[in-house]
């Protein structure tokens, strides 16, 4: 295989989002992980950014209000020309 890419903190940042998404070639992944193992600053940045993505996925932001849903169902009933049950 090719020569391992030299990873700097700057180039780690460029690839970090793809790394979080698992959207990265195997060899580059190994190089990024080698960099993470020896660079605490990048590790903290990576860990916090990954947690940030996860926290948004674990909360149901903007739950649908009951009145909004009722009006949606009403609008559909109107389109169908029927009174709402």
């Amino acid at each position: 295989m090719g020569v391992k890419k030299k990873i700097t903190c700057k180039s780690f940042l460029d690839d970090m989002s793809n790394y979080i998404d698992g959207d990265i070639p195997q060899e580059l992944r190994a190089s990024l992980e080698a960099h993470l193992a020896k660079c605490p600053e990048c590790w903290v940045l990576f860990d916090e950014t990954k947690q940030t993505v996860e926290i948004f996925q674990s909360y149901n932001c903007h739950p649908l209000p009951v009145d909004v849903k009722d009006r949606l169902l009403g609008a559909l009933q109107n389109q169908w020309g029927e009174p709402k049950k």
Binding site: L13, M16, I20, L45, E48, T49, Q51, T52, V53, I55
Partner: peptide, 18 residues
């Protein structure tokens, strides 16, 4: 990437508590 980094800056103090 920029959105994630900005959100991480805003939420930093909260992450451990989360």
């Amino acid at each position: 990437l920029r959105a994630r980094l900005q959100l991480r800056d805003k939420l930093r103090r909260r992450l451990k508590g989360h």
